[in-house]
Design a protein around this nucleic acid. Structure first.
Length: 273
DNA sequence: CATATGTCCTGAGAGC
DNA sequence: TGCTCTCAGGACATAT
């Protein structure tokens, strides 16, 4: 996502418009008039990320924070359809005419935050260290006293930032850890395995431009589908043969109201990988 | 404090 | 065919 919009760095914002969309408006803060007054005339000097959010740093020191959740897209080309286009940020100077926010379900948001607001919103107690920066010590230190199940804990953005539901299942399968294993029961080798699996899975998913699931929603900034869905080993594959052991079938369970997929043979409970 | 649950939203797909 | 129901999942508010 961030890679695809790197080209907007150096562009000046010359307009901000809500797309005409008959659906419920997405959350925009502050309201449009204020947002526009603060954004127009500024230049995007850097692209960043805060967990799963895209951050556009402005030369005014404010930041535009786009939070797509699962059905939102940040685009620099025409969106998949017009009916879910929510916001246009018009640009000048680097050849990209606009940056668009499209959201099929409208659960995402776009915010313009002052440095103070940004620091408060993404302070260390609200957003943990980024998943791509973790070490076994860090992971173990932050989670090993929790009584929660490891799959549920991996989704807690205050503990570690950036792991979503799909990748949590893939990570634990790669690590050979049962998703219902309690954090406080995991061994040191298991924490090491989870850490390595997290780095491997996320890097590989990024290399393949993410996962476009069967609803076809996810696209990169160029409206191109991801490819990592073809590498999923357990997610969405319930009752299929596990591609690792080829002996057990993938099981689907629900944890904290979200689907979890795992292989009961590769991820046997109590096993210290 | 830690952990668990309900809510937001739209569209796809199942079942009848 | 057309209706109702369920599900998908990020973050946050509220409850335990």
């Amino acid at each position: 996502m961030c890679r695809g919009i790197a080209g907007v760095i150096g562009s000046r914002i010359v307009g901000v418009e809500r797309a005409r969309c008959k659906l419920k408006p997405i959350s925009l803060a502050p309201r449009l008039a204020t947002f526009r007054r603060k954004a127009v005339g500024t230049t995007i000097i850097q692209i960043g990320r805060a967990g799963k959010r895209v951050v556009l740093w402005l030369d005014s020191d404010d930041a535009i924070v786009i939070e797509p959740r699962m059905a939102g897209l940040v685009l620099v080309v025409d969106p998949p359809d017009q009916q879910h286009l929510r916001l246009r940020i018009r640009l000048r100077g680097r050849g990209i005419p606009e940056l668009m926010y499209w959201d099929r379900r409208g659960l995402g948001s776009v915010r313009l935050l002052s440095p103070r607001q940004y620091a408060a919103a993404f302070s260390p107690e609200k957003l943990g260290p980024d998943a791509l920066q973790i070490t076994p010590d860090l992971l173990q230190g932050r989670l090993s006293t929790s009584r929660r199940e490891i799959k549920v804990a991996l989704l807690d953005q205050r503990a570690i930032a950036g792991i979503g539901n799909l990748y949590a299942s893939e990570i634990l399968h790669r690590a050979g850890v049962h998703p219902q294993q309690r954090c406080d029961k995991l061994s040191r080798p298991q924490w090491t395995a989870i850490c390595e699996a997290t780095l491997d899975i996320l890097r590989e998913a990024i290399r393949h431009e993410g996962s476009t699931l069967s609803d076809g929603t996810y696209r990169n900034a160029l409206n191109k589908q991801g490819g990592y869905q073809n590498h999923h080993r357990v997610y969405g594959r319930q009752s299929q043969l596990c591609p690792s052991c080829a002996r057990s079938h993938v099981v689907r369970i629900v944890q904290a109201q979200r689907s979890t997929f795992y292989c009961p043979r590769c991820q046997a409970k109590g096993r210290s990988s």
